[in-house]
């Protein structure tokens, strides 16, 4: 080593050591601390994601475990009487006819407009209204005859029975003596059962008070096709996906 260099190192050793320390700190920060910091930040975000998901799962589990399965099954069955999982044309006809008979009217004519396939037709293109409602619509026409007062009762009762019917149009002609004939168009609804439960971390929407009231209201609607019931309560196999075969 040349004498000048040795002299320089000896006289500036503390400065050189300091510069080496600064270099280590800078290089260590760039190649060590920054990537490490990024890893920590990523872990922190992952932790927050997992914690928020866990919070949703915890709330979902808490809700699910507080529900009574037998009550849910009964409620589900009651609602399926109003909106079945397939077209179930027989129950439409029975509801319309039995409601007319209960109102003291005689059914002159009863038609189901364009019933199509009796299967669920899941792939069938839905109308704008069906999309908006989230269910299929079956239109039926009925002509009934009897006293006008009974027709008024019938029109009111039609929208308060299971299966659920919605009055689309009514044309009432009143003849001498208060005897009337009504051509009525009603809509009934069906919606296929969901085939999947969706993401397990999807939050469970809590049922509002108005929905509870609606459920109670629907359950109070009389079922006009009791005699046609051949199936038992709705049940699902106890698997991960209760709707899968």
């Amino acid at each position: 080593m040349p004498k000048e260099l040795r002299h320089f190192l000896r006289t500036n050793s503390s400065l050189l050591v300091s510069l080496v320390m600064i270099s280590i700190a800078i290089a260590g920060s760039i190649w060590g601390l920054v990537p490490f910091g990024k890893t920590l930040w990523s872990m922190y975000k992952d932790l927050n994601t997992v914690r928020s998901k866990t919070a949703i799962l915890s709330a979902k589990y808490s809700t699910l475990s507080s529900l009574d399965e037998s009550q849910l099954a009964a409620g589900g069955n009651d609602l399926l009487r109003a909106i079945p999982s397939d077209k179930d044309v027989a129950t439409i006809l029975a509801t319309i006819e039995q409601t007319a008979n209960a109102s003291g009217l005689s059914v002159v004519n009863l038609t189901i407009a364009n019933p199509g396939s009796l299967a669920t037709e899941a792939a069938l293109r839905q109308s704008a209204e069906e999309k908006q409602l989230g269910s299929g619509i079956i239109t039926s026409g009925v002509t009934v005859e009897g006293p006008f007062a009974n027709i008024k009762t019938y029109l009111n009762t039609l929208q308060r029975v299971r299966r659920l019917l919605r009055l689309q149009s009514a044309e009432v002609t009143i003849r001498e003596g208060g005897v009337a004939r009504a051509n009525i168009t009603v809509e009934s609804f069906w919606a296929a059962l969901p085939t999947t439960l969706g993401d397990i971390a999807a939050p469970l929407p809590p049922r509002s008070t108005s929905e509870d009231e609606l459920l109670a209201r629907i359950r109070a609607f009389p079922v006009s096709y009791q005699g046609l019931l051949t199936t038992g309560p709705v049940s699902f196999p106890p698997k991960q996906n209760p709707f899968s075969p």
Partner: peptide, 29 residues
């Protein structure tokens, strides 16, 4: 929690059916 929820999938399925039916009923009525 995921395992516990999976064990309650029957309850979740019924709850989903009721909620979807109530949504339709609410719109129809």
């Amino acid at each position: 929690l995921s395992q516990q929820i999976r064990s309650l999938s029957q309850v979740e399925g019924l709850y989903t059916i009721i909620n979807s039916r109530l949504t339709i009923l609410s719109r129809v009525l």
